[in-house]
Write a protein that binds this DNA or RNA. Structure first.
Lengths: 239, 239
DNA sequence: GCTGCCTGTTACAATTCGTAAGGTTTACGC
DNA sequence: GCGTAAACCTTACGAATTGTAACAGGCAGC
């Protein structure tokens, strides 16, 4: 149903030094991660609109943006684990970095092996509850059976959903309570770029909302973020 | 009144040095955690059967048990976040500690403030992915529901706010009674630099003020500091 | 062929939010 | 006090974004 996603965890690396980018990227690829590297914050942010990495490695000493402010925004908006890499070794730096939402703080110079270990530690906690093979999900009084294309309400009502609707629903259930941009949807659902795909997406979501019994004026599960994407509220439990 | 369940997160401390135990315990209590301390692994394990802490701080240099083995068991059996505290500073030590299931590794001697920050970082992710970002805030007779984009007054009136307005409101509620400069807003709200962003910001704030029912002549909640920024007055309570 | 279902497309309505423009307030020098 | 410049507020407007109804093509099964 979902297109064969890359099973490897995706690590985004933001550092202005090419040496370090390459070193990190090589080490991480070797350790079994998928990586993408960026030298500038703007570039990095643009990429985040298209794809949602599992971990972000962020160097604080960026030329084009205040690193801490970037971390703060990431922490609020992205579901990724955020690991700061920094030359600033003062305790106060580490404390403020962590308070602003970073999940870890690694000091330069660092040992690549430790970076790998710390990334793994983060992924264990973040990812553990996402069973990739699961076919049943519970949320907001509904039970979705992806193998039978069926939604079952608490009262026992059954509502069938289609393949296209299921793709969207699964995408939402895979990352509840975080922003899913249209670009990400396009990437994952494999739509052709362009204006018309947006309309198709709208329609898919509209139909899904109807089946979930959402009030059009005031949807409680699938929220629209104007100019940014959608966010699925509701606690999700797979299995 | 029935004793309310202790809402504070519970940190279990296992260290054989009384000095350190006391120091950690004092700092953490002061930081708003509930603590319990243990000097021996056996004692600690016995306690775990009765109560499930949210975080375990474990010193590796224990007299009565191999610390790493203990960490490994904890990682498998307990849902707590595990933070190793150790005098062993080699990269290899850290890597094996993390691989065995620890969530963080702090080297002695450490700064208490960093321990607090790292514990908080762990709790953010572990505690329940759901309230990663708090979603309800009370202030000045209002209750803001960020998940529903709704302000509810004491009288029960509901006022919807948009995403852009919510961003600003959240920024204020995150740092009440402190000056928030326009530069900070720009960084955090991710606006492009330039004159035009200032005007946009003005409008956002104006609209927010209107929804909060502020008297334009005499705003009580969002105060303008001419030439510097804004300051949000009003006591904020999250949750 | 026909029928039913799924899904994209079109068209139009509704909403959001930045921008422009003009008014008001503040700070500061006189 | 007054004048001026800069900062700030508000309103109205319009471009961009999103929602949804209605239509049409495609593809199964019969």
């Amino acid at each position: 149903m979902t297109p064969a996603r890359d099973a490897r965890a995706h690590v985004a690396i933001l550092d202005d030094e090419p040496e370090i980018r390459r070193m990190l990227s090589d080490t991480l690829e070797e350790a079994g991660f998928r990586t993408s590297t960026f030298s500038r914050a703007t570039e990095f942010e643009a990429a985040l609109k298209r794809t949602a990495p599992d971990v972000c490695l962020v160097d604080l000493g960026l030329p084009d943006r205040d690193g801490l402010a970037l971390v703060h925004r990431l922490a609020l908006e992205s579901g990724a684990a955020i690991i700061i890499i920094s030359g600033r070794a003062q305790v106060q730096d580490r404390v403020t970095g962590l308070e602003l939402g970073a999940d870890d703080y690694i000091i330069k110079p660092f040992d690549p092996a430790e970076v790998v270990a710390r990334i793994r530690a983060r992924l264990r906690k973040t990812r553990s509850d996402t069973d990739r093979t699961a076919t049943v999900a519970h949320f907001a009084g509904w039970t979705a059976h992806f193998d039978r294309y069926l939604l079952v309400s608490e009262a026992g009502e059954e509502v069938a959903f289609s393949h296209a609707e299921g793709e969207v629903l699964r995408l939402f259930l895979d990352s509840p309570k975080r922003l899913v941009s249209r670009a990400q949807m396009q990437e994952i659902l494999g739509g052709a770029a362009g204006e018309s795909f947006d309309r198709a997406m709208d329609v898919r979501i509209s139909r899904l909302r109807t089946k979930l019994g959402e009030d059009p004026k005031n949807p409680r599960l699938i929220k629209t973020i104007y100019g940014a994407g959608y966010i699925f509220l509701g606690d999700v439990r797979w299995g």
